[in-house]
Design a binder for these strands. Structure first.
Length: 334
DNA sequence: TAATTATGACGAC
DNA sequence: TCGTCCTAATTAC
């Protein structure tokens, strides 16, 4: 599910609700029993997101989590909500003070603990009043009577504070790291606009891409070249730049490469604030609303194989590239 | 009930 | 380039 924007949002949830608190850690599923026992009873001291990975610090012990293709964190309990997170769903500038929801596949509907969806206030985040549960299945918050919440499905790791429960399932990576190991993991990653200086990041990205014979469509997905881009953003960014995915990096004009980086800076920031991958922001508001209303209609090319290109009408094509589906318009991106 | 799918990444050839 | 791992929802039969 997650590309970079989701991971930064999840890190903010940890910052609000877990950091600064002691946790009871367990592995209901059993596959992270050793790691959980190391974390159990410790206080979370900080959290970092870099690209698609999150690092949660417990003093000198770090937890590294990579959600992979279908990993997810579910939060339950009394949850302090980041006002900027809560202000998504087309209601930018408003603050839902009672609750929010984690990513579902494509967006994050907002509801509060009472099932309403229109609370608004500006200011510091407040604690949810009732006991609530956020999940992807329910797409909202619902009253929770049991505490701690019953374990549902394959929970690799459960972190429980007095108020909050965070359940991790399906991660592709979940491990304990030393500070050195964290540093080494991060050192292997390409620039992340929300972590690195954007000017330095641009230079790093441009110099690598402009040296490589590898197709630009592959380079954008390469986490050592640029952090946080996944299959959806890859396809959308290439369309926005009208770039052929097969052009070798070194043959892509420098200004286009710089444009790709700057587009990622913009899209990531928007994605983090909005809680969804907004890649059609250059559409006019009405067309945009119409596009967003339909679930299958919110991208330029992603998941649109066989459908007419929104710009030129040509059939969007899909091909397999390094085991992933690559969507693009053969005419606009000739 | 089984097959298919997914916004990822790794290691073996 | 292929197989493999991780999980759950959706679709097909």
């Amino acid at each position: 599910m997650p590309e970079g924007h989701s991971v930064h949002r999840i890190a903010r949830q940890f910052d609000r609700n877990i950091v600064g608190r002691r946790v009871a850690a367990s592995s209901p599923q059993g596959r992270f029993a050793d790691g959980a026992s190391i974390l159990d009873g410790r206080e979370a001291t900080s959290v970092r997101a870099v690209g698609k990975q999150m690092f949660l610090e417990f003093d000198d012990v770090w937890l590294r989590v990579h959600l992979g293709m279908y990993g997810a964190w579910d939060f339950a309990g009394d949850i302090i909500v980041d006002p900027t997170i809560a202000s998504s769903n087309g209601r930018m500038g408003q603050t839902n003070q009672r609750g929010t929801v984690v990513d579902d596949d494509n967006d994050e509907p907002i509801m509060d603990a009472a099932g309403e969806n229109s609370l608004s206030s500006i200011g510091a985040p407040r604690r949810a009043r009732g006991r609530v549960r956020m999940s992807e299945q329910t797409r909202g918050l619902e009253e929770e009577t049991e505490w701690p919440p019953p374990v549902v499905g394959q929970v690799r790791l459960r972190l429980l504070t007095e108020l909050t429960c965070a359940d991790l399932r399906g991660p592709t990576a979940c491990q304990i790291q030393t500070p050195d190991e964290v540093a080494s993991t991060i050192a292997k990653l390409g620039p992340d606009p929300l972590v690195d200086d954007v000017v330095e990041g641009e230079e790093r990205f441009v110099s690598v891409v402009r040296r490589k014979p590898t197709a630009i469509g592959l380079l954008l997905m390469d986490q050592s070249v640029i952090s946080g881009i996944g299959n959806v953003y890859r396809a959308e960014m290439l369309f926005r730049a009208r770039q052929n995915p097969h052009t070798p990096g070194r043959d892509v004009p420098e200004e286009i490469v710089r444009g790709l980086w700057r587009d990622w800076v913009r899209l990531l920031a928007i994605g983090v604030e909005a809680g969804q991958m907004m890649t059609m922001d250059d559409l006019d508001p009405q067309a945009y609303r119409a596009a967003m209303a339909s679930r299958d209609d919110r991208h330029w090319v992603y998941h649109r194989a066989g459908l007419p290109c929104r710009v030129c009408g040509t059939s969007i094509i899909v091909e397999e590239a390094a085991g992933r589906k690559l969507y693009w318009c053969p005419r606009c991106q000739a």
